[in-house]
């Protein structure tokens, strides 16, 4: 009979896969060691899954339905509040608005009012959706609007703006500039609104997908300013300007709205062609 004890490695293997061994059958020391290993294996097998004080699934995939419902409720109330605010502002500042749009058809005024609804809605929604940095940006735009509106309101009812040396800018030019700038700001707000809504949808999707870190930052990068931005605004403002010139020649009326929209859409079309061309070049 082999009197040599099994090595530690052999003992471990024997405990896992016992095979006939003459020494083990007669050696109490080895038998004890093997039993100890077998006991250890049974203890490991008996290990219970540690109890965690959280649910991984809930932690990573929150119930989107509940969140969406809550957000929809907020959206409806914000839109309602924005419309009420607009009606109030209209009543309070009617004289200023009537000067700005004097001689412009009712459709033009309605159009302007619709843009104002958008303006207020965007501001309120922006407050809800975006972070502090974005809110500061919106404040800047609001401030800009107010600064622009002040001289216009101050000159309400006059024949134009009188400069230092007695040169007067005609009233129609002042009003055109204000309206063009108003359209510029409103368009910026509308674009911002679209971006907020799309970002919100994107964020929701990203949370559902669990995308975080560098990828998420890349997808939501607000610092990236398109190099084509200047071209876009050049085309849009130019087409809006052409639209106003055409309106002044053809006269005001329901047609003026169509002319303006047509010119702006041409601007967008031009921008699309420009982008396609740039893509082909690159």
């Amino acid at each position: 009979m082999n009197n040599e004890h099994l090595s530690e490695e052999q003992l471990q293997d024997y405990a896992m896969h016992p095979v006939a061994n003459e020494h083990v059958d007669h050696c109490s020391h080895c038998q004890l060691q093997i039993k100890a290993y077998q006991l250890l294996y049974s203890h490991i097998k008996a290990q219970e899954l540690p109890a965690l004080n959280f649910n991984t699934e809930t932690l990573l995939l929150p119930d989107r339905k509940k969140v969406d419902k809550k957000e929809s409720r907020y959206l409806y109330s914000l839109t309602g509040a924005a419309i009420a605010l607009l009606a109030l502002a209209l009543v309070a500042c009617w004289s200023a608005f009537s000067w700005l749009f004097a001689g412009i058809s009712a459709i033009g005024i309605v159009l302007g009012l619709l843009f104002l609804v958008g303006l207020i809605t965007v501001q309120v929604m922006d407050f809800y959706f975006t972070n502090r940095k974005q809110i500061t940006q919106m404040k800047q735009l609001t401030l800009l609007t107010l600064i622009m509106a002040c001289p216009a309101l101050a000159h309400a009812g006059t024949d134009g703006v009188t400069l230092v040396q007695g040169v007067t800018i005609p009233d129609v030019i002042v009003r055109t500039i204000i309206v063009v700038l108003l359209f510029f700001i409103i368009s910026r707000f509308l674009l911002k609104l679209l971006k907020i809504l799309l970002d919100h949808r994107l964020k929701t999707k990203m949370i559902d997908m669990g995308i975080v870190g560098a990828d998420a930052e890349k997808m939501l990068d607000r610092k990236t300013v398109s190099k084509h931005c200047a071209v876009k605004w050049f085309l849009l403002l130019m087409s809006a300007g052409i639209g106003f010139v055409m309106i002044s020649f053809l006269g005001e009326g329901p047609l003026s709205f169509g002319i303006f929209v047509f010119c702006v859409s041409l601007g967008f079309g031009g921008y699309y062609l420009y982008l396609n061309k740039q893509k082909d070049i690159s």
Partner: peptide, 13 residues
């Protein structure tokens, strides 16, 4: 808890 979250976020990413 933090690591479990981190692991699955990395997995999806």
């Amino acid at each position: 808890k933090d690591l479990m979250q981190d692991i699955y976020l990395k997995t999806f990413r």
